[in-house]
Nucleic acid binder design. Structure first.
Lengths: 197, 197
DNA sequence: CCATTCATGTAATCGGTTACATGATTCT
DNA sequence: AGAATCATGTAACCGATTACATGAATGG
């Protein structure tokens, strides 16, 4: 009993998958879909990354799969969390989290925008404002749905809906701020800001 | 005259460097420092990525360097933008920009926070709120400095200060929103939100 | 004396994207 | 007839991080 079974350091993607599996067993395909929405607002991956990661998690004893044969569809592997997997997940939750440094090409362009055609840049900013406004609207709709369906569970700290709620709130704030910045930029570029106000 | 000199698709880092060089000639070392601050709020790189990228940009004819010998310090290569480099930069500015999908480990943890110890998670959220509040304060200080130093140039679309201004505004909005979300989360986890208000 | 700054590079590794590969069923 | 959905994998590549490597001058 000297030393644990040598878990070779699970990646963040691994914990994302464990977090999804903590809500119920799923196949690799389902997990890939789940990584679009709502986890996908802040983490995502393609199936080509998910399948090998699941194999690694299983080798580390954090998940297990059962083969489910299906008549009209391809057979699938349904994964579930093991006790060790649950423990690894809560240990990760308690561990320190790095503040991420972001890369954002649009803001990088803004830094060089003084070299560009203002009208063209304004159009680009308006387009991005629209995209973020659309994201915002979608998140707000989802939150409204959630309020109807989950009700008070949205606010219960030990409910899985609280997690969705938390992430959605972050998404809403982020998209609102991004939209406002794009619109402010567009306004400046269209001439409003030239003479200080 | 069939086809341009076959620029092998400059990376985003390449354009970040061109954007910095458009403001004045610099060495690879200087550029690496510049990628911390203020461009670094939205793009960054280590020197091990910068030096090879500069070599690639030079091979593509977008920058040129001069060796500057120094007595008391190591010699350095000072890079400057070529005409082709400036053209590549403005072409990139005019091109479509992808809306980036973000990965954020803290929000990912929030999604699984229903499995954690609320008090410990609250402490983590307060810590992150502090970090973002500190970033916010720093950005606001910088903007205030810029206002004093650059004055009206901050609002002139063809001034390089306008680019800094734009990026700083984005940083300020982002950090403020992130701080507020962390504090909202902490409040919930400390019990305020349990019974719906 | 040791750490930091200035200054430039290379090598190993890792996380993630794109593309390759297969194949049945259902919807348009 | 062709596209999309379900379902699982592998391989090549690329961008980025970490570590390796060197070396003089200055500051604590």
């Amino acid at each position: 009993m000297t030393g644990s079974p040598r878990t070779p350091a699970t990646s963040t993607l691994g914990f994302a998958l464990l977090g999804l599996l903590a809500r119920g067993e799923q196949s690799g395909y389902d997990l890939t879909q789940g990584l679009k929405d709502p986890v996908g607002y802040f983490w995502f991956a393609r199936h080509s990354q998910v399948y090998p990661e699941l194999a690694r998690l299983e080798a580390a004893g954090l998940v297990q799969h059962t083969l489910v044969e299906q008549a009209d569809r391809p057979d699938k592997k349904v994964y579930r969390l093991t006790g060790e997997g649950g423990a690894a997940l809560t240990a990760w939750l308690a561990a320190d989290t790095e503040v991420p440094r972001k890369r954002d090409e649009l803001v990088l362009k803004a830094y060089s925008i003084w070299l560009s055609e203002p009208a063209a840049s304004a159009r680009m900013m308006r387009k991005h404002a629209q995209v973020h406004a659309a994201h915002l609207a979608e998140f707000e709709t989802r939150l409204a749905c959630l309020e109807r369906e989950a009700g008070a569970a949205l606010w219960q700290l030990d409910s899985k809906w609280f997690g969705v709620h938390a992430a959605l709130r972050r998404g809403i704030g982020y998209e609102r701020e991004y939209r406002d910045w794009c619109e402010w930029m567009a306004g400046c570029l269209e001439g409003e800001g030239v003479s200080r106000r």
